[in-house]
């Protein structure tokens, strides 16, 4: 298996060149795009493993890109990269199908690791996203009329998310809980699935009322 092939989608060329210079020697950057239409064309042409996607684009939002290419390229994965702390942005792009959400303050090394992880089909949660999910799934206000298993976190998932929110890496969390890194990844992926499929219909509205910023 060769290096992970990545497309960058961000309307700021400064951000793109910054990410490119940080990731360039670790990953294979096969394309760049500055808006939704350009991104869709570029992704369809290059069929990358991972798309690094800005949440806000001049002609729309990141979820529009995901929806436009998802049917043609089911194996292409998306990682949202944003400066936005607004939960409604986060929840929208995650529910559209992104495999993770990281903020632009992430280091190049961590970002590269996150891209590889997403390419392998795992989920990537920033501490803030973990805190947000805990908040959303703890809040009594949004309990659906008939909560299914998708609407609640297991105690183990809760523990894993708490460690991520505390700033632990997957490896550190695994050590702390005497689990393997693989198991941690499985738990995080399960939480991502719940976040995407939960029928807490109120989740989106709730997100727009709250802010990730503490």
């Amino acid at each position: 298996m060769g290096r992970t092939r990545v497309v960058l989608v961000d309307d700021h060329s400064l951000v793109r060149s910054g990410v490119r210079s940080e990731l360039g020697d670790r990953l294979d950057i096969v394309g760049e795009a500055a808006d939704v239409a350009e991104a869709v064309a570029c992704i369809k042409e290059t069929a990358p493993d991972v798309v690094l996607l800005d949440v806000h684009l001049p002609s729309g939002t990141g979820d529009a890109v995901i929806q436009a290419v998802h049917d043609d390229l089911p194996d292409t994965r998306f990682l949202a990269l944003s400066v936005s702390d607004a939960p409604d942005d986060v929840i929208r792009v995650i529910r559209a199908g992104a495999r993770g959400y990281v903020t632009k303050s992430i280091s190049g090394e961590e970002l590269a690791a996150a891209v590889v992880r997403v390419a392998a089909g795992d989920a990537v949660f920033s501490p803030r996203l973990a805190g947000f999910v805990l908040d959303a799934f703890t809040s009594d206000v949004v309990v659906a009329p008939e909560p299914s298993e998708l609407d609640v976190l297991t105690p183990r998932e809760r523990e894993v998310l708490q460690l991520i929110a505390r700033g632990y890496t997957y490896r550190e969390a695994a050590e702390e809980l005497f689990l393997s890194v693989k198991t941690i990844e499985t738990h995080v992926s399960a939480v991502l699935r719940k976040l995407q499929l939960s029928n807490r219909r109120e989740l989106t509205r709730w997100a727009s009322e709250r802010r990730l910023l503490p």
Partner: peptide, 26 residues
């Protein structure tokens, strides 16, 4: 409580030149 914690963190960031990643639940 959130506002209190955020204000305390901001103060430490300014005084000691560090970055604090703050996450609050509840």
């Amino acid at each position: 409580l959130r506002a209190m914690v955020a204000a305390a963190c901001a103060q430490v960031e300014d005084e000691y030149d560090v970055t604090i990643n703050l996450v609050m639940v509840g």
